[in-house]
Each structure stands twice: as structure tokens, then as C-alpha cells.
């Protein structure tokens, strides 16, 4: 019991809070800094608080203050669990293409993240539109997704920067990363037919460099360049929403350089490559944070409880009616109208 009383001392809370502030600053200045800089002060504060919740009668006898501190503890635990089981990832999807978990590029994956869950996500990329204000300032994004609904069948939903698509706990957000794709069909002499998309660098950020590499089914390397109409002036309202009326694809391999219009075919050694058309692709940010609603709930309940605590303590300790004055003077009010 004695040890709990020591651990519960409010005198430990202050260095704990200071250490947390220092830990936050260290991690902020150096993102590679060990998580221990924040984890250790948080752990110490949690132990300090837990001990106080057991023995400190000042906190236990005030339910609202107790709830506030319990909520603080809950926020730390929920955020830690969320961090360990969360996922941050990216994916690029071309119009008409279905989401494929295998295409997802991980940014950060917590050790407790249930990876196979991502396989259950099913949707198809529909048309998209990104509005720009003069001077290439990105405005609203509207990306349509075809989602299979058990009751209504295939439904179209529109998402944007502030409105994610949520499925199986994953949130899909549109990003500034989007561009053009070339749809190619490989017709092998062995009868194999394969269609796929080659995404070109983000547009309009890289309008000067619409090139990409591709390794064909026969293992041959190609350099692809998309020829778009001359970039228009971006000093006016503009929307990234449709493929240009004229677009051509230049395919380069060895010393060969061939320019294809949509629908044209390039004859190669063991098959034919057909340039079907140009479409748009959208880059998504994916996040998975399973206990988010509970985190919000705990934070809100905590603030409400603390507000309750303050209200109760203000009421139980009203400001003195005839508070003292060092010197009383009649007509001053500072300002004086304060004097009742």
C-alpha cells in the first residue's frame, strides 16, 4: 500500500507531464527518434494516475474529476491500441478497374493489423473529376465508386477529400495524386489475351514527364510516353475529368520507336500489343483505425466530465460577495463598477 501511495503522489505528475512535453518535442524534431521518448512518460503518467485512482481520496471523492482522469487513461490506451493495429497505405486505381488488395502499397502497418481483412474490400473505380481554380489550386474532388450492395445491387457512391469511402473499417480518401493511364491489351501468339493499365506520373504536377517503364509478358522492357495535347494555360478554372480528345502513345524498345493512336496495334516477336485508350486513375490514401469512434467518445465524455467538475467547484466556492479592497474610494468603478 505504501508503494502505491508513493506512486500516486501528485508530485510525480508534474515531472511526468514535463517529460511527456519533452518527449513530444524530441519526436517532433527528429521523426526517427525512438517511440520510447513518448512511451516512457506516458507509461509513468498512467501508473501515477492508476495509483492515484486507487488511493487519492481527493480524486475518488469527486466523480466528475474521476471520470475525466479515467477518460484520459482510456484515450491513451485506445490510441496505443489503435496505433498498433492501424494501417496507412496507398493505392492507385484506374477507371473501370476493381480494387485489388495486392496493388496496395504499405506506408505503415501496425503489428496487430489483420492484413487478410483488406481482401474483403470490393469496389470498382468509376468516373472522377478534380476542379482547379486559376493558378492550379486544387479544389473539390469527386470520385465515383461502384459498390456491391447486398440489397440494392451495384450502387454508385461519390467520395471526395473530406468524405471517405468506408468499407470493412478501411477509409479510402482521394488525394492530389491522380493522372492518366494507357490501357494496353497483349495478344500473345500462344493465344493469351491480357488487358492492363499503365499509370503515368501524377497530373498536372508532372505534365512535362508523362513516361513510364513496362515489362511485357515476354520479358521485354518498353519505355512508354504519353503524347497529350500541349498543356493548356492553368490560369483559369479547369477540371481534370476526361481524357484529352487526342492522345497518342509512343512505345520505345531497343532502337525502335513507334507512335500509336488509340485502337492501333504494334506487332512484336511473340505477340501483338494493342493500345486501347487513355483513362484516368485516382490515388487513394487508405487508413484503418479500428477504435476511432470509441476514442472520440472517451475524449468527449472526459471533457464533459471535467466541465461538470469545474462547474460544481465554482458553485461550491462562490466568489466573495463583499470582497476586500485595500482602499475604498467612492466614485471609482473599475474598472470599478465591480464593487457591489
Amino acid at each position: 500500500m505504501k508503494i502505491i501511495c508513493r506512486l500516486a503522489s501528485l508530485r510525480l505528475t508534474l515531472p511526468g507531464l514535463l517529460a511527456l512535453a519533452v518527449g513530444v518535442l524530441v519526436s517532433y524534431r527528429d521523426v526517427t527518434a525512438s517511440t520510447a521518448w513518448m512511451a516512457v512518460p506516458l507509461l509513468c503518467l498512467a501508473v501515477n494516475l492508476l495509483a492515484a485512482l486507487i488511493v487519492n481520496t481527493r480524486i475518488r471523492s469527486r466523480p466528475a474529476l474521476l471520470v475525466f482522469h479515467l477518460c484520459l487513461l482510456a484515450v491513451v490506451l485506445l490510441a496505443t491500441y489503435g496505433h498498433l493495429s492501424s494501417l496507412q497505405a496507398r493505392v492507385e486505381i484506374t477507371e473501370g478497374q476493381a480494387f485489388n488488395a495486392a496493388d496496395v502499397e504499405m506506408v505503415r502497418e501496425g503489428p496487430w493489423h489483420p492484413r487478410q481483412r483488406l481482401d474483403s474490400v470490393v469496389f470498382v473505380q468509376g468516373p472522377l473529376r478534380v476542379d482547379y481554380a486559376p493558378g492550379l489550386k486544387r479544389q473539390h474532388t469527386a470520385s465515383q465508386l461502384g459498390i456491391r450492395d447486398a440489397v440494392a445491387g451495384e450502387v454508385l457512391t461519390t467520395i471526395g477529400d473530406n468524405t471517405p469511402h468506408i468499407q470493412a473499417g478501411y477509409r479510402f480518401y482521394t488525394t492530389s495524386n491522380k493522372g492518366y493511364s494507357a490501357i494496353l491489351t497483349w495478344l500473345g501468339s500462344d493465344g493469351v489475351r491480357q488487358t492492363g493499365a499503365i499509370n503515368f506520373p501524377s497530373y498536372p504536377a508532372n505534365d512535362w514527364n508523362q513516361t513510364n517503364q513496362w515489362t511485357g509478358p515476354a520479358g521485354k522492357h518498353f519505355r512508354l510516353e504519353l503524347d497529350l495535347p500541349r498543356p493548356q494555360s492553368f490560369d483559369r478554372h479547369w477540371a481534370f475529368d476526361a481524357t484529352p480528345a487526342v492522345a497518342a502513345l509512343t512505345i520505345m524498345a531497343d532502337d525502335q520507336r513507334v507512335r500509336l493512336e488509340p485502337g492501333e496495334v504494334l506487332q512484336l516477336e511473340n505477340g501483338r500489343l494493342q493500345f486501347e485508350e487513355v483513362r484516368l486513375w485516382m490515388g487513394y490514401r487508405i487508413t484503418y483505425e479500428p477504435l476511432l469512434p470509441w476514442l472520440l467518445f472517451a475524449a468527449l465524455v472526459g471533457v464533459l466530465a471535467l466541465a461538470w467538475h469545474f462547474l460544481a467547484s465554482f458553485n461550491s466556492l462562490p466568489l466573495p460577495e463583499g470582497y476586500g479592497h485595500r482602499e475604498r474610494k467612492e466614485n471609482s468603478d473599475v474598472i470599478t463598477a465591480a464593487r457591489t
Partner: peptide, 12 residues
């Protein structure tokens, strides 16, 4: 405000 406190005048 400063005039009020300096000259002891009601200025609220």
C-alpha cells in the same frame, strides 16, 4: 481604462 485608474474616474 488607464485614465479611469489613473484619475480615479468611473469609466466602465
Amino acid at each position: 481604462a488607464w485614465h479611469g485608474i489613473w484619475r480615479d474616474r468611473p469609466v466602465d
